[in-house]
Nucleic acid binder design. Structure first.
Lengths: 213, 213
DNA sequence: TGCTCAAATGCTGTGCACAAATTGGCCTGC
DNA sequence: GCAGGCCAATTTGTGCACAGCATTTGAGCA
């Protein structure tokens, strides 16, 4: 890993997280110069990062205007979720990674974090936990192409959830998430990655339905 | 569409086609300066294009060395194909676009082109036809996310076919492709997009198996 | 003749200055 | 008072020059 690609990854992750956790809600202007100053680089490397975010549909650059965080329209959301459902199912079928003790230990960490969160829930904390759990789910798939496609889709619409949480019941969402973890624990204990994938799929589906309510 | 994004699309399509049709086979050095001169721009806009190609895994930029067209290793090929199979199936299930007379007319065009090709087959001509037909297949899907993911995967490994054709029977490949078109015509005549997708999936699967032989 | 090392060459990465474009405010004229 | 146009400020897009890095090549030497 060179210094250049290292910095790229750092900037990219930071901006993506900023967008998906609504530190930069849709419509926010991401000034190249301001960000370059903040991260201690010049505009050039930063523009490389913004270009990738634009390819992924998270921002939109307009000449003479600025680089704006995009919004997610309803139809796009529907289509992305429909595809994510199927990809999640495929993760359990195509080439599941072997379930090891480390896998189960990681899940236990998530259970602990979810317990702690349920005691003092915050929207942002939940969104962060959910994002980390998504990354964990991807690590259970051996198919790199599937992993990349799923990741792309996830981040494309991840900010929707935090936008909708005011209309939802946070405590209830935490409880449901904890349920999912418990069910997944059972699946992992039985060495059944396909069952784990189906559980995840079911919860993504239900989550989408609650989103629309 | 601004002039800038127009040029970007033009450069991007040109380079991608150059890579996938083996005008620039794996290992080729794509010199930024040479390409900039050829397309009549400076290095800056061209680097934006190369950056995207790198994100998509078609080239790899190395500091002090050059920007090289990547090779496709066997495992990557296997994983991409495995996922493409499933996505093709999904194209017929998730949100198939309505089949119109124009759809059928387009297919007839492909039949004619395939007939002409079968009379005087060339590897490059076949690859080009196959690429166009892939784009046609995508147009039958209403799910934008699915379309983009499929396109990405297709171009990621498209160059493999032309690399392998010397070890295969070109005339036979043409005949098989013509068969697929005829079967698809039947499916479209019956207004059955799911059947069309299954046919496509079956042929992609068989194509992959012939590739490995 | 073969090996080593250093200089030169060619490439991508970066920073900076300028061009192009849009927006919003202000001013003028009616 | 209002409408319309013009101008200036702000922002992204582009071109260029230089820095940093890897490879190559050739001279010198054993």
């Amino acid at each position: 890993m060179t210094e250049a690609s290292d910095r790229f990854t750092r900037l990219y992750s930071a901006l993506r997280e900023r967008i998906c956790l609504l530190d930069a809600p849709p419509g926010t202007k991401l000034s190249e110069e301001a960000l370059a100053a903040e991260f201690g680089t010049s505009r050039t490397p930063l523009r490389r990062v913004l270009a990738r975010l634009e390819d992924e549909g998270l921002v939109e650059s307009r000449h003479g205007v600025g680089t704006l965080v995009t919004d997610v329209d309803a139809e796009e959301l529907r289509q992305v979720y429909a595809l994510r459902l199927e990809l999640t199912h495929l993760a359990g079928v195509l080439s599941p990674a072997p379930i090891t003790d480390e896998t189960r230990a990681q899940l236990e960490d998530f259970v602990q974090r979810a317990d702690a969160l349920a005691a003092a829930p915050t929207p942002r904390g939940f969104a962060q936990l959910n994002m980390d759990y998504h990354a964990f789910g991807l690590s259970l798939t051996g198919n790199v192409a599937l992993r990349e496609a799923s990741e792309r889709l996830y981040f494309r619409t991840a900010r929707i959830w935090l936008q909708s949480i005011p209309r939802m019941d946070l405590a209830s969402e935490c409880a449901i998430f904890l349920d999912e973890l418990h069910q997944t624990r059972t699946a992992l204990a039985a060495n059944d990655p396909q069952a784990a994938a189906l559980i995840r799929r079911a919860h993504i589906s239900m989550s989408m339905n609650r989103l629309y309510a």
